[in-house]
Design a protein around this nucleic acid. Structure first.
Lengths: 257, 257
DNA sequence: CTCAAAACTAATGTATACATAAATGGTAAA
DNA sequence: TTTACCATTTATGTATACATTAGTTTTGAG
């Protein structure tokens, strides 16, 4: 799944390391949305030959960050605000299907235990007061929760598709947790989110497929709400959401305040 | 979308042509599921250097047909019966979301007209009697219908995701239309399918998002029913479904007759 | 001045050689 | 017999040179 942990930085091959570097360059705005990528220039910049660089470009195309041009070469993909919104919702749709399938087919006790432990740990982290939230730990456990969920359907097709969607910047479950906001609505959303974690675990345990699906779809809506909250009240926080620099200004301006 | 038309055969580059050839080799069973692919051997076999061959292998990994091995290199992905089933259902889930979003956001009249014409053409092709079906034309128009639907949400994220899913063999809308069956249940499924085409068009026109979504989800179920029908009554037809050679025998045997 | 064709330059696609890592086979020790 | 180690072979990763295509500039005609 699109989880950007530090250990990814030590890629095994030059191509993999180039992926990390190029991704960073794009997300940092060093190459603008719509901007072309030139192989010779980039390979010199990264100090590698064109061969692994080309491989890296292909991988980033798979991730959805780059587009192939009809005449060859790549450009950085530009997103609209709706794209961001759709990607988040799509994640919810697929996680919803995963949760339903897990509920319908049943889950091995060991896998349920993993999720139970994660949910219990999340409960301790969230606390009972908005000032009582360990954000870093929450983010970590949130990721674990979503990884555990991805495995629950025991379906390589579903896992792979979820992985594909969440490779987009802004589409992974934890991509909105870097927002620095003291607005109580934002902080309160964590409580709601955790309630949904608990609820979907219960729905799966009880074999309630439709309920599980509905909960996960609504769960993703939380990220969409947070996105809208940021756009409306504090746009400086957009820099804390990966990939938002790639969204065109026109569609951001068009978001109703 | 995963539409395999003949014009794809003339790839612009050697890498693209290698993709076509390799895909064929895998789907024809020339390389078995789980089997390794060796670059030097394949490049000699295809008469190209390793460079475009490597590019082609990467593209087929993106399609989901090949898996990357931890020590490098690729192997052909093996599927279970459930994988096939899940892929079909997942397509329905995503097409369902597309239909809902189209209904919710509205669709430009020109796009609606395209779909109206396609549905009308499908009506003439399906006829009123099971013996009165022009299969080749149906298949063509069915593809057009699904392409038109993919465009209707006007969402690059959704279109791209649908494209990704349907790149899998057996997951594209037309992948079950090569089944040669005189069983009236199979033939009748075309009538039902076409009724669903009509219904989803109407739902989108009327802005009925939930209805549109439900119809497309059920629509994909038709392909799952046809798959089960074939497995239970006439397994010789499995060769007419792309990618079924890649499904492990064990899970095929496990399908209840 | 505009447009089309030709010439030139830059970028991408491909082949090949070299470097590095993975896999295989043989041998010795427990 | 099994396991570990080492040497050899094979396969993949990378660099570089060459071939082909795309893009830009220049020139000439109407």
């Amino acid at each position: 799944m699109g989880v950007r942990v530090q250990s990814d930085r030590q890629g095994k091959t030059q191509a993999q390391r180039a992926v990390l570097e190029l991704r960073h360059m794009v997300l940092a705005g060093e190459i603008a949305a719509g901007g072309r990528l030139f192989e010779v220039e980039l390979s010199e910049h990264l100090g590698i030959s064109r061969t692994p660089l080309r491989e890296a470009l292909g991988m980033l195309e798979y991730e959805g960050l780059l587009l192939r041009r009809s005449g060859g070469g790549y450009e950085v993909r530009e997103f609209t605000f709706d794209d961001v919104s759709d990607a988040i919702e799509l994640r919810g749709i697929i996680e919803g299907m995963i949760a339903r399938v897990a509920a319908e087919r049943g889950v091995a006790p060991a896998r349920l235990d993993v999720m139970r432990e994660t949910v219990a740990a999340l409960d301790t982290v969230v606390g009972t007061d908005a000032n009582d939230v360990n954000f870093a730990r929450y983010s970590e456990l949130n990721t674990q929760f979503h990884l555990a969920l991805a495995d629950m359907a025991q379906s390589s097709v579903l896992r792979r598709e979820l992985e594909h969607v969440t490779r987009l910047p802004f589409a992974a479950p934890g991509d909105f947790l870097n927002i620095q906001s003291q607005d109580p609505r934002f902080l309160r959303s964590l409580f709601i989110s955790q309630a949904q974690h608990r609820a979907v675990l219960e729905a799966i345990e009880l074999g309630e497929g439709a309920r599980a699906e509905a909960i996960m779809r609504e769960h993703a809506r939380g990220a969409r709400h947070n996105l809208q909250h940021v756009v409306r009240t504090d746009r400086s926080q957009l820099r804390n959401i990966p990939g938002l620099t790639l969204v065109d200004d026109k569609s951001l301006l068009g978001v109703k305040p």
